[in-house]
Nucleic acid binder design. Sequence first.
DNA 1: CAAGCCAAAAATTTATAAATTCCAAGTCAA
DNA 2: TTGACTTGGAATTTATAAATTTTTGGCTTG
Lengths: 231, 231
Amino acid sequence: MSIGIVHGAVEAPATLATGIYERLKADILSAQLEPGRKLQLRFLMEHYGAGQTPLREALNRLTTEDLVVGKEQRGFFVQSISLEELAELTKTRGWVEGTALRESIANATPAWEEALLVAHHRLDRTPRSLNPDNFENNPEWERCHRKFHALLIGNCGSRPLIAFCEQLADRLSRYRALSSRKSFRVRKVGEEHDALLRAVLDSQPDAAVELLVAHYGRTAAFIQESIGNPT
Amino acid sequence: MSIGIVHGAVEAPATLATGIYERLKADILSAQLEPGRKLQLRFLMEHYGAGQTPLREALNRLTTEDLVVGKEQRGFFVQSISLEELAELTKTRGWVEGTALRESIANATPAWEEALLVAHHRLDRTPRSLNPDNFENNPEWERCHRKFHALLIGNCGSRPLIAFCEQLADRLSRYRALSSRKSFRVRKVGEEHDALLRAVLDSQPDAAVELLVAHYGRTAAFIQESIGNPT
DNA sequence: CAAGCCAAAAATTTATAAATTCCAAGTCAA
DNA sequence: TTGACTTGGAATTTATAAATTTTTGGCTTG
């Protein structure tokens, strides 16, 4: 999910199909298109203002990413969610990002450590909520958070692994979006990031991986609770 | 790359697009469509006997799997290969299948161990070459081999991880196809599989993972040699 | 009440049109 | 004369509109 920013301006996608793809993906990840929903072409054409071909292409790409399921001859649906999948994704993310983080630390360079430090600083500075009283999700914080985590594993030296981690993060972000829609309570994660950063900069892979896995585990438990108990 | 066999008959894909997708994927993996080749719609339409839309859908799916690259407004190309990617894929496969195998062993059940035993037996029984004198790749052996390796990691309890392993195996199979095209020498892998099976059945995860990683490492070295030195 | 048929809706595919890129020939300046 | 830059047309990709299947849900009929 790369954000195409060039000199402050959003780079226009060269083709309609990729534009639709990005918008559709964003709408699914933010759960504006809710899990299980049927994606009828007529509706999509009207909603996104495009013909069938670009839509069909976008849907096919998302199918490979498991965000959309295509039942043959019966149309496309937003992939449905389940507590089981949440657990499976979290478990897998822990394993995979664990090895990626270990490799990243093993390959550590000053430049990487400094980038990590900066990303953490920015994350720390960015307010979690747009509104100090009522929680209102701050997309800028989301970006910083994502960037920080991407950087943690980004030094592992395997582009396929990084891409897989991104995919897992995408699939999990849908659960987070649903959670924050139901519950206005917010978990404090600042300390967890602090400890993680310290372990990484101190070259303590075992501790770092343990902290990372625990971090994801707590997020999953939090989400599970807020989704399981409808408010 | 699931082979759709039901009661001995190949299940016909419900839609043209998925049929094309499977054929195109097979042709890319077997390197009949060579790396870097431009995939012109006119040629594909003629060659696969289909319209543009199903082809376009297939290409878009393959794009997400990194088997095809789509340059915007400039068409589609078979993903090119490089020794660098070979190394990266091999390394990643070792890491990921390593953790998957560990989990599989941790979750071991009698049924799984027996399935593994059977798969190994079948692999052992199937001749590597169709022709005893000159090497001629036996697709049945390929299937058995793949099945054995899939089973090894298939008990890990994470469908996303299994899917990722399959994708890595797909991307690597292209290199193997190119290698066996250039060199008629064949590596003996029977003993490696034997040792691997024994370590798994003896519940020795460390040894098993080491054997698996070494197995993939040797395969990569073999391929690298035969591709690097054109015969 | 179940099975089968018919009409409407929806997905898939083909055919047509529009937009973009590519290539080569030609022009101009150095 | 050479090299870089433009220009026109052909080829190709992308998008829209129309046609073809396939499914679905209701209705009739046994």
